[in-house]
Amino acid sequence: MGIQINALKCTNCMACEMVCSYHRDDGFAFLSACLVAYRAKEKKDYFGMLLKEEDVLIVARPEGIEINKIGEEADPDKKADASAKPMLLRESCDLCEDMDDYGPMCIAFCPVDAITLD
């Protein structure tokens, strides 16, 4: 069971990122989120989501899902964004196991239902 992301339904509102971080911090912040709205290519209107799971980093792009195994060597041809967040240092998605009333917060709070449980 895991998070499934439809990047084409996503409107890049960052609600998922906020409540994901809230689940860790009990305050409003973005620093601890394991699910992040990707928005660094603003002029190109290119956005999606990044999700850190225990063994993989999922990149939900508009053109499809890319799954990168954590620990594998990065593609040397891919240029990292200057603002790339240290996703690998963050805690992995735990499906908000301690949020009994909600289930995964990102699913509960996504206003456009772009995130579902697989």
Partner: peptide
Amino acid sequence: THRNSADYFTPYATNTALF
């Protein structure tokens, strides 16, 4: 129209990108 996007946590996407 390319895609529509929203301001922070705004359920309706009030911005439209034109290519």
